[in-house]
Simulated scan of single mutants.
Amino acid sequence: MRLGEKPGTVVGLAAAALLFVGGSVPGSVSGSSTGTRTVPPPTAAPTPTPTPSAPPLKDFQRPVTDCAKHKCVALTFDDGPGDHTARLLDMLAAADAKVTFFVVGEQAVHYPDLILREVEEGHEVGNHTWHHTQLDRSSIARIHKEIDGTSKAIERILGFKPTLMRPPYGATDARVAKIAKSRGLAEIIWSVDTDDWRDRNSSIVARRAIRGLRPGAIILLHDIHPTTVDAVPAILKAAKKRGLTLATVTDLLGGNPKPGKKYMGE
């Protein structure tokens, strides 16, 4: 997602204020792989936190795909959850495909049931910062808040913290890597960018993703765009035809991505 493409969500929830350490932060940066925009700090009084309908999944054991035996590809979906995530999950369930969702903290507190469903259905949830902030242009304090707030939000919903983090825009530096390592988070970039934020055409998005389908690939998509979700059936069909297995990033990387290390995919 790029400049101006992220739907406006305002952190007005008590969870947002409490989990985002230090309270609200002025002038957040939002968007996706390139470009920035300034968002004013929230002014509305906090409202009660929505609670998930199911208990946390602290002891949940996600099914594992052995990518040493299968030709695995990782589809990754950023910036959600959103209004189109449930429909995407239906498609993935029908195809028995597993993916990784890199969620934005301010979205996660609005859609806790979708976060739960993602994990219950065998998918993986990673940290994509609170406001989709470009971390390599941020202060140390801001980096801490963006990462920690989202990890705490995920832990509050699921009962455990994420182990993966995708820096917005893929923008990272030594400071971000050090903080990610201290938080037990591997940095996940991508090897295939579908540019689905720019071209809201499902055929174009599907074609770009299918062209990048190869063992070891990490493909960037966004579940906040309906056109991207519309492209998924064609991607799933092509992967199956090529004998590829759609797996989570952690499984693609052999089950043990190292905190602080940056992974690009093949």
Rank of each mutant, 00 (worst) to 15 (best):
K69D: 02
Q134A: 08
A45H: 09
T227Y: 04
V104I: 12
P52S: 06
D193Q: 01
P226G: 03
S53K: 14
E106N: 13
D78C: 13
P81K: 08
T194L: 13
T49E: 09
R156C: 07
A86C: 07
L92Y: 00
H128V: 02
H222W: 00
S139Q: 04
S203D: 15
I147F: 00
H110I: 15
H110N: 14
K181V: 02
G265E: 03
S53Q: 09
A247Q: 01
R166K: 09
V29S: 15
T194R: 10
R200V: 02
I204P: 11
F60S: 08
T76K: 05
A45D: 07
S32W: 04
D90V: 08
L164N: 10
A94T: 07
S30Y: 09
E187T: 04
A206F: 12
L253M: 04
D230I: 11
S182R: 08
I143M: 13
D78V: 03
A171L: 08
D193H: 03
A231V: 07
G122Y: 05
E155P: 07
A141S: 14
T100E: 05
P41S: 14
A209V: 09
E120W: 05
A68M: 05
I143A: 11
A247T: 06
A174Y: 04
G254H: 04
K152A: 13
K261P: 06
D193Y: 09
R214L: 05
A68H: 14
P48C: 06
E187S: 11
P226C: 11
G265V: 09
I179F: 00
A14E: 15
K258A: 14
V29I: 11
A95K: 06
G170A: 01
V73F: 00
Y111S: 04
K98D: 02
V249H: 05
K71Q: 15
P52L: 07
E187M: 14
I157H: 01
P41Q: 08
D90K: 07
V109L: 05
F160V: 12
S202V: 09
D96C: 00
I218A: 05
D136H: 11
R214G: 08
A174C: 12
I210S: 03
G265F: 03
F102I: 02
I219N: 00
F60E: 07
R175L: 10
I235H: 01
R2W: 11
L252G: 08
K58P: 10
D230Y: 06
R242A: 15
P167W: 07
A247L: 02
A14N: 12
V11P: 10
F102T: 08
L252Q: 03
T49I: 09
A14I: 13
V25G: 08
V99M: 00
A206S: 14
V103P: 12
V119G: 09
H222P: 00
M264A: 14
A97L: 02
S24V: 11
G82T: 05
S53I: 11
N256M: 02
A153K: 01
V232L: 06
A44K: 14
F160Q: 12
G8I: 13
S24Q: 12
A247M: 01
P233K: 12
L164D: 10
A74K: 06
D66Q: 08
K6Q: 12
L3V: 14
R142Q: 11
